[in-house]
Simulated scan of single mutants.
Amino acid sequence: MVDPPGLPEPLDELAAEYRALPPSLGPVRLVAVDGHAGSGKTTFAGRLAAALGGAPVVHLDDLATHEEPFGWVGRLRRQVLEPLAAGRTAEYRVYDWTLRRFAGVRRAPAAPVVLVEGVGAGRRALRPALAALVWMELEAKAARARGELRDGPDLAEFWAGWARAEHAHFAGDPSRPYADLRVDGVTGRIVRSTLGEPATRP
């Protein structure tokens, strides 16, 4: 993930806010970081995890596949959400994008705050389990250009297919209107509201 330029603000205050939220999934406060591919989700989630003292981060790229870029809800629920809700460490299988199969296992302990980052992290099926939802504010074309620059020409065909799948996903199940806050995908600055839109979640 390419770090966004600029001087992003410290996240200590936001981390304190998240620690103070009521648990949303058993003993866990589950915080989602969503946005278009290439918008800076992984970078921001890493910074926020550090501000939280090393909070676990579940990357949805580990659960998605070539055949099912957005068909990971069942895997996430069974392997991550259900164990965390019971106060147990989650153990989930990781998809290898080169081998095109699941290989290896990662773990996420039931920490006070657990982050889940990736395209669709704030989707309808997950929102009831979330304590907070962050949206990376970078429009799809700019985010894709950043991702293609990062990954090189060999993955141009993959990006074209991904862009179609992502567009279809957000058209039917948008996350942005339900975000509690938004983060500028270029500068990393926190935006508490955008265009006067309410930040309400069901």
Score class of each variant (00 low, 15 high):
179 A>T: 03
56 P>S: 12
112 P>M: 08
194 T>L: 15
51 A>F: 10
185 G>A: 09
71 G>Y: 00
146 R>W: 01
55 A>L: 10
26 G>T: 04
164 R>W: 09
185 G>L: 08
117 E>C: 11
188 G>F: 02
35 G>S: 03
189 R>N: 12
82 E>K: 05
105 V>G: 14
1 M>F: 11
107 R>I: 15
98 T>K: 14
147 G>I: 04
187 T>K: 04
150 R>L: 01
91 E>Q: 15
197 E>V: 13
37 A>Y: 03
86 A>M: 08
109 P>W: 12
192 R>F: 07
169 H>N: 06
47 R>K: 15
59 H>R: 14
177 P>H: 09
150 R>I: 01
105 V>W: 13
120 G>F: 00
1 M>T: 09
172 G>M: 07
48 L>Y: 09
54 G>A: 15
131 A>R: 07
19 R>D: 09
24 S>H: 08
41 K>T: 05
193 S>T: 12
113 V>W: 01
9 E>W: 14
144 R>L: 13
104 G>F: 11
184 D>K: 05
151 D>N: 05
190 I>E: 11
185 G>E: 06
157 E>W: 07
153 P>W: 11
89 T>S: 13
152 G>C: 04
195 L>C: 13
72 W>K: 00
189 R>I: 04
36 H>K: 04
33 V>A: 00
130 L>M: 09
74 G>S: 05
179 A>F: 10
12 D>K: 14
132 A>H: 10
56 P>H: 11
122 G>W: 06
25 L>Y: 01
138 L>N: 07
170 F>I: 06
98 T>A: 14
9 E>S: 15
89 T>Q: 12
113 V>Q: 03
2 V>A: 15
103 A>V: 13
181 L>Y: 07
180 D>I: 06
189 R>E: 13
67 E>Q: 12
62 D>I: 05
163 A>E: 10
100 R>V: 12
124 R>W: 09
97 W>L: 03
132 A>V: 07
74 G>L: 02
172 G>C: 07
79 Q>K: 03
72 W>C: 01
189 R>D: 07
117 E>Q: 11
81 L>H: 03
39 S>M: 01
144 R>D: 07
177 P>M: 02
109 P>L: 09
178 Y>S: 06
157 E>D: 13
86 A>R: 13
54 G>R: 15
95 Y>K: 11
115 L>V: 07
40 G>R: 00
128 P>E: 11
176 R>P: 03
94 V>Q: 10
27 P>H: 08
118 G>S: 10
170 F>C: 06
21 L>R: 12
179 A>K: 04
50 A>M: 13
88 R>S: 12
120 G>R: 00
29 R>N: 01
52 L>W: 11
28 V>I: 05
83 P>F: 02
29 R>C: 01
143 A>H: 02
105 V>Y: 15
25 L>K: 00
103 A>R: 14
150 R>Y: 05
60 L>K: 07
159 W>G: 00
100 R>Q: 14
102 F>P: 10
76 L>A: 00
80 V>F: 01
113 V>G: 05
74 G>V: 02
171 A>V: 08
28 V>S: 00
